[in-house]
Design a protein around this nucleic acid. Sequence first.
RNA 1: GGAGAGAUGGCUGAGUGGAUGAAAGCGACCGCCUCGAAAGCGGCUGUGCCCUCAUGGGUACCGCAGGUUCAAAUCCUGCUCUCUCCGCCA
Length: 426
Amino acid sequence: MYSLKFVRENTELLKKSSELKGEKVRWDELEELDNKRRRIIYFVEERRHWQKDLSNKISERRDSDDEKSSVQDMLRQAKKYSDEIRKSESELKDIEKRIDEIIMSIPNIPHPSVPEGMGAEDNVVVKNWGEIPEGKDFEILPHWEIGEKTGILDFPRGSKIAGSFFPVFREYGAVLVRALINFMLDLHRKNGFTEVWVPVLVNRESMFTTGQLPKLEKDMYHLDDDDYFLIPTAEVPVTNLHRDEVISEEKLPLYYAAYTPCFRKEAGAYGKDTRGLIRLHQFDKVELVKFVRPETSYEELETLVEEAEKVLQALKLPYRVLKLCTGELSFAASKCYDIEAWAPGIKKWLEVSSCSNFEAFQARRGKIKYRNTREGKTDYVHTLNGSGIALPRTIVAILENYQQQDGSVLIPEVLRDYMGGIEKIV
RNA sequence: GGAGAGAUGGCUGAGUGGAUGAAAGCGACCGCCUCGAAAGCGGCUGUGCCCUCAUGGGUACCGCAGGUUCAAAUCCUGCUCUCUCCGCCA
């Protein structure tokens, strides 16, 4: 969220970038409201100044007998100012609310290195890793069939307990979930990320800071009784760790890793490409979040992607990295890379990680600052986050890539110690 | 869930109606001292908004939102959070 001043001074840039992201903003109304606002502020402050003067005089003279009548006059006049101020202020409040609404609808500006475009076809593949196992001499089954055969996935019972898109993992399926979480957290911890465990229910302010609110309210589960939201990603609680804080510069950069379940309504998700574990209302994810000095944030984005890639490399899963075009960028992001793992059973690339630099967009919303020791000033940090990585689709990739002709599934070597030493799921 | 106490600047902490953006200390920054550093000494040190080409001026902000008043960090109401005690619970 931008300050009104910044919007005023950079209207053309913001207009252009909003268009690139496909967001409609009521620019004309904003300009009109801005002018109105400034007129009222001038009026109010002038009167407040006069009122202040009078107040001081009143306090000087109130006890003197010979000036009683003039004090009465001053009181009357001060009262008049007070009423005028009150009236104009309520008008001002209304105008500022409307201005805020419009400013909130302005998306973050894409970085110059982001390719222009509106759809997935305009994303750019910047990296391919691993070999796509197409040459196998048997038909690779989709993961839901493997899951059913080995008994590690139970969709009908998940539907019975909760509803569709709530899976149940059984036996080594459940163990695999636990193993992946531990493996990923251990990996990131070794690489300098501080592990944190955070609430999965958060308040409105937290959702606002990261940009889910106000735009995406309908996509999230909400507890009406006490106005809590179920998090759609650990990005929300972890980024909000430092909301309303001033971090001393020597503490930067801060790296965090957190495991949480994630909850998404995914309204209208029924239909194509939603079978199995591809799209769920509840899923597990290990998330990486960075708080950094502004001048380093684009380098930090590159190393964040690399950190997520390490998970896939260790699991020996083929993947590619995409640089998202402007139209595919989320509302709050300046630049974003997606990592997609190859699923040979369903013959699809699956997004398992999304790594974004938000620059100061979230920091401004959440007042996350740092103190620049050289200048003694505070400034907003840059925040970044990336999945490191999302579990269900990774499980899809494992089940399909590690499938054997006899229907069994080999366990990736790095996970075996986490799974009691077994080598395959039969 | 019930009762009580509290929320002040980067931090600790004074301030109970009028000139308080707010004492004091710490920290940070600048300077002196020093070969350099520490200590010591001196200085300086919040943010937003409005007006001004600028120097500068004005205004707001003491958890949040209202109210009383000519005037509120200070009084009143509601809310949020923290702490203590009780209840309940894994």
